[in-house]
């Protein structure tokens, strides 16, 4: 697996329930078409059976199967007490038809 979850993201996720979903979120272009952007969310997916489940130390990852082999890094960032999960790496990974 090429996916990495940074220590600070794991720490933050543990406080949020220890579950993260990595999925592709479509972004529409203004003139048609679009691209899928990889996003990370601190929750279980709506349909877990459609995801690949992986245990990463004490965090459970639900990953879109098309992302499993991607080199991705899940981290958390923010300011003023607000935090936001983000994914770095090759994303979007596919064009949206």
């Amino acid at each position: 697996m090429a996916i990495d979850v940074t220590p600070r993201a794991r720490e933050w996720l543990r406080r949020k329930g220890g579950v993260v979903t990595l999925r592709l979120s479509p972004r529409h272009g203004c003139c048609g078409g679009g691209a899928d952007v990889t996003v990370a969310e601190a929750r279980a997916p709506d349909e877990p059976e459609r995801y690949t489940r992986l245990e990463f130390e004490d965090v459970t990852l639900h990953i879109d199967p098309s992302l499993v082999d991607q080199e991705l890094r899940v981290d958390v960032d923010g300011f003023l007490g607000l935090r936001h999960l983000f994914v770095e790496g090759t994303s979007p990974t596919r064009a949206r038809k």
């Binding site: 090429a2 272009g29 080199e71 890094r73 770095e88 790496g89 064009a95 949206r96």
Partner: peptide, 20 residues
């Protein structure tokens, strides 16, 4: 870990719909 930087890029029209 480093982000993967692929030397190959998508086809120039791959991300685009027919309309676009």
């Amino acid at each position: 870990m480093t982000a993967h930087q692929d030397a190959t890029s998508p086809d120039h029209a791959e991300g685009m719909g027919l309309f676009e």
